[in-house]
């Protein structure tokens, strides 16, 4: 057995050395060609299998890469969305402040800008807290306005802040008139957060839906001509002495962030400082 194996090894070694010698002399092309006839088809099949396997593997890797890429893009998208929100927010704030500044510059009154730092929206009381207080020489009953119209009045002055009673507060009442007809009345807040235009004379009222209601300037608390809201519905009480109307506030009290406090000379009409079409 051992001798047979050794003989086989000897023969193989002899064949190999012979092959190598013949190749070095350049005369064994036939043997290589003959082997190629066997190896080439096998190699072709294996290469195809290899390519298919690598294709599956490549697809899997692509899929993994896509997942990673997807996650990265999602994170980036989220970051950009936050960034966009921040930019939008800054843009909106910039827009608001520009409007406030424009109003401040156009008003023939002394004003002081303030920022809303709290809101009370329970229904019993509807108020805003502004970051101007005793230190800023804010007086009680100071009128508070915004670029869209009248907000309310200061009812409580504290050290670093003041509480503004907004028009929709049930205890709020402001002398007003309709711009188009000069119909006088009183705007009062209602518990449900709306405004009511009261005490309009039945005769000669002639209100229409959409009429603009502004402060009348009577009473000395608010300058005349500040937009309060627009007539939404008219409540005809038949034989009652007065008519009533529901008014949509000109200012969105839930969204307002900056206001102007009118600190002096409030007896002048300021209607020209507000954009209104009637």
């Amino acid at each position: 057995m051992r001798i047979r194996a050794l003989a086989l090894l000897g023969i193989i070694a002899g064949v190999c050395l012979l092959l190598l010698t013949l190749q070095m002399r350049g005369s064994v092309g036939g043997a290589a060609d003959a082997l190629a006839v066997v190896t080439t088809p096998v190699q072709t099949v294996l290469a195809r299998i290899n390519r298919a396997t690598l294709g599956v593997w490549g697809t899997y890797r692509d899929w993994k890469n896509v997942r990673v890429e997807n996650r990265r893009l999602r994170e980036e998208s989220q970051r950009l969305r936050v960034e966009a929100l921040r930019v939008t927010e800054t843009d909106a704030e910039n827009h608001r402040l520009r409007r406030l500044l424009t109003l401040k510059e156009s008003l023939p009154l002394e004003t002081m800008a303030g920022e809303i730092i709290a809101r009370e929206w329970g229904g019993w009381v509807r108020s805003l807290t502004v970051n101007r207080g005793r230190g800023d020489a804010v007086a009680r009953l100071t009128a508070v306005i915004a670029p869209d119209g009248l907000v309310g009045r200061i009812v409580d002055v504290r050290t670093g802040s003041s509480v503004v009673q907004v028009l929709t507060d049930p205890a709020s009442s402001v002398g007003a008139h309709v711009v188009r007809t000069r119909t006088p009345g009183v705007i009062e807040g209602e518990p449900r957060g709306t405004l009511r235009f009261k005490y309009m004379p039945r005769d000669g009222g002639g209100l229409q839906i959409g009429d603009l209601v502004v402060s009348s300037g009577l009473g000395g608390l608010f300058p005349g001509g500040i937009p309060i809201g627009r007539v939404r519905t008219i409540d005809d009480r038949g034989s009652a002495l007065f008519n009533y109307a529901q008014v949509t506030p000109a200012v969105d009290f839930a969204r307002i962030d900056e206001v102007l406090l009118l600190t002096g000379g409030i007896m002048r009409d300021v209607a020209a400082s507000f954009k209104s079409d009637g």
């Binding site: 090894l9 193989i12 070694a13 064949v15 190999c16 050395l17 012979l18 092959l19 190598l20 190749q23 064994v28 043997a31 290589a32 082997l35 190629a36 066997v38 190896t39 190699q43």
Partner: peptide
Amino acid sequence: DAATGGLLGVQALTKAV
């Protein structure tokens, strides 16, 4: 050897040994 295009017999001999 044949598949890799090298000298025929080199790896045949070493692997046989």
